[in-house]
Simulated assay, not measured.
Amino acid sequence: MSSEVSYTTEEIAKLLKISKLTVYDLIKKGELPAYRVGKQMRVDAADLEAFKNRSKGVKAAAEAPFAAEAAYTASAAPPSLAPNGTRSLVITGQDISLDILAKHMERNLPGIRPLRSFVGSVDSLISMYRGESDIVSTHLLDGDTGEYNLPYIRKFLIGSSYVVVHLLKRKAGLYVREGNPDGISGWEDLKRPGLRLANREKGSGARVLLDEQLRLLGIRGNEILGYDREETNHLGVAGRVASGDADVGVGIEKAAMTVGGVDFIPLTDERYDLVLLRTKQNAGWIGTVLHIIRSENFQNELRSISGYDLSETGTVLYET
């Protein structure tokens, strides 16, 4: 293969028939050398070929999706270290605040290279349980208690050691067409026949928020037009409402500020928290990350973005 050819993490995942989180874990453990181009991680073709050669003797990834994991755990390379001696940490979630956090970590943690994985809250917790990520974000509402995140974290991370720290609050609710021609005011309006919904993917915090509200109101998802049509981010949902392809969608206020032709109906203050995995390898940076989150420099950057409530930022909510 030409050394000039390189692949994105998505392309590597498709080629090896493994999840993108497994690709990030390969990079984190130093088995798959990677480098950053802007916000994107890339892997040279020669390094991919070398990894595949090292993996010979293990079942092909196409036959066993986790065969690649068995290959790199048997390697003699130091765990979690890239070839140049830096250590990669995987941060999951989609909010821009996480990109700002990653930038501050690069500045304040020599030898640490943050990698971003853009997945939803449930997939983030699953990835941490599997040991595939180090910092995960979550905004999952438990409808029975009205509590955010901790009920889910305790269930998913059984047997793990971790710290839960509050990052920010943001308004969540419904996107409606400009001027709200359908007169939508709350969750109960979703039972109206004929309303077309723009939905989020399963496992996202917005999808859990919607499904919990529907459950509490006794509304079945398959009774709502568009319930099975999914978007992978808030902008996609707001965009469908703005274009007239849907009448209502669930999401956060910030996306409505970005997409024209959409009004926003705030219905809840959503808690956006971080879970930091406690391991021997992570002990050296957890204190620094907490210091960054509580710092004026970091919070001032967040204040420049509309829609964030930082009144409790940096508060440790739970630790094992």
Rank of each mutant, 00 (worst) to 15 (best):
P151G: 07
S304C: 04
Y35V: 07
S80H: 12
I292L: 05
L235K: 13
I184F: 07
N222S: 14
G30R: 10
G307R: 04
A206Q: 11
Q213G: 12
R229L: 11
I153R: 01
G307N: 04
G93R: 00
D99W: 11
V58F: 15
K191T: 11
K155T: 02
E49F: 12
N180P: 03
K155P: 01
V259R: 08
V164E: 01
G218P: 06
G38A: 14
I286G: 05
K155D: 10
S295V: 03
R303M: 11
K14R: 15
D123G: 06
P151E: 08
R42H: 09
S133L: 01
V58K: 09
S3V: 12
L157T: 04
A34Y: 08
L197G: 03
M105F: 07
N108V: 00
F156K: 01
A70L: 10
A74Q: 12
R294M: 06
G30A: 10
S19A: 09
P151F: 00
G159S: 11
Y152S: 05
L197T: 04
Y148D: 00
N222Q: 14
N199S: 15
K254G: 08
E106W: 05
V250A: 08
S117Y: 05
K103G: 08
D99T: 10
Y24E: 15
K20F: 03
R294W: 09
K169V: 03
D123F: 10
N53A: 15
Y129P: 00
A46V: 15
E4D: 14
T22P: 00
L98A: 05
Y308N: 00
L174V: 07
V259N: 02
E230F: 13
D25M: 01
K254V: 06
A50D: 12
L150F: 09
D123Q: 13
R130F: 12
P78S: 02
W187L: 11
T315A: 14
D134A: 01
D134P: 01
P193Q: 14
R303G: 07
E253K: 08
Y175C: 01
I224P: 06
D309V: 03
S2D: 15
P83V: 03
A206V: 00
R220V: 05
E212W: 07
D134I: 00
L195W: 12
K202P: 11
G261R: 01
F118P: 02
I224D: 13
A76Q: 12
S88N: 09
Y318R: 00
D247G: 13
E10H: 11
T232V: 09
G244W: 13
M1D: 08
G173T: 10
E10W: 12
A77W: 08
G239T: 05
Y129H: 13
Y24Q: 15
L290D: 01
L210A: 09
G251H: 10
G173S: 08
K169C: 00
I293K: 00
R36F: 11
Y175W: 03
E31P: 00
L167A: 03
I224M: 08
S137I: 02
D269M: 08
S127Q: 04
G159A: 10
S80A: 09
A283S: 12
H139Y: 14
K29I: 07
G57W: 13
F118I: 02
K52L: 15
A71R: 02
G314Y: 04
T145C: 11
R294A: 14
E201Q: 12
K254I: 11
V176K: 02
A62D: 12
R87T: 04
E132I: 03
N53F: 12
R36K: 15
L317K: 05
V23M: 09
K280L: 13
S185N: 06
